[in-house]
Nucleic acid binder design. Structure first.
Length: 231
DNA sequence: GCGACAG
DNA sequence: ATCTTGTCGC
């Protein structure tokens, strides 16, 4: 487990944070299909908070994309770097997530984030942000539709419907379990939307949420429980 | 101006 | 995100 500090020059206000998003957004790559599902490594990242102690814990878990077995994992703890503001989630999570990714002993491959990528007020959610900062292929898989609209996908697993910002498709509602509430998939960096959905399906053989996020969620909660006050 | 709003 | 017991169902 590594300890991180809030980076120098980290945005202190919402206005500064939005300016950073508007600048970094130019660097998102949307014209690559990304790695094929079921091959190489796939990783999940997630974060847990203790606002009372001002502690945040992040986890990165690398899975074998074929077997979904855990190949490697790492955690990091730090101070909370930004309040939760809808649309600015990345500023709350990214420093600790980057530290956890850096601590991995092997390349993470495609990274699955808890939240959104393109499906974002300024088209630059957590998954896009993490992708631009690391250069890694990233996607976002969220549990809620945020402010976007969508039709209910058909009942069978694998059914999708467009996630819409007005008439613009910013992601997809994807049914990962028959008759269960869908997840909301969007592109982060260097992955197509079709491929992002295919990866999500490959990662959900038995549960609604991807194995990557399930593993990362369990690990960051454990790291938070075991965390001492960060330096 | 008033709500809604990823985690 | 987090606060939280039991309970219904595969």
């Amino acid at each position: 487990m590594t300890t991180v500090r809030i980076p120098a020059g980290w945005p202190a206000t919402e206005e500064q944070a939005r300016a950073v998003q508007d600048e970094l957004r130019e660097r998102v790559v949307l014209d690559e299909p990304g790695p094929p599902p079921g091959t190489g490594h796939v990783s999940g990242v997630d974060v847990a908070y203790d606002d009372r102690r001002d502690v945040v814990a992040a986890a990165a878990v690398v899975l074998d994309a074929t077997t979904l077995e855990v190949v490697a994992e790492a955690t990091a703890v730090g101070r909370i770097s930004f309040p939760y503001v809808p649309g600015l989630l990345a500023f709350r999570e990214i420093p600790t997530v980057l530290a956890a990714l850096d601590a991995l002993p092997c390349p993470p491959g495609l990274v699955v984030c808890d939240g959104y990528g393109l499906a974002h007020p300024r088209r630059f959610g957590l998954a896009s942000h993490l992708g631009v900062l690391t250069g890694l292929p990233t996607i976002g898989v969220a549990k809620n539709p945020f402010t976007f609209t969508h039709d209910d996908p058909d009942t069978p697993r694998g059914s999708t419907s467009a996630l819409l910002a007005g008439s613009e498709e910013v992601g997809r509602a994807l049914r990962t379990r028959e008759a269960v509430k869908p997840v909301f998939v969007s592109v982060g960096h260097r992955v197509s939307l079709d491929n992002a959905c295919a990866h999500t399906l490959a990662l959900t053989p038995s549960y609604r949420l991807p194995e990557t996020t399930r593993r990362a969620d369990a690990l960051c909660r454990k790291a938070l429980r075991e965390a001492t006050y960060p330096a």
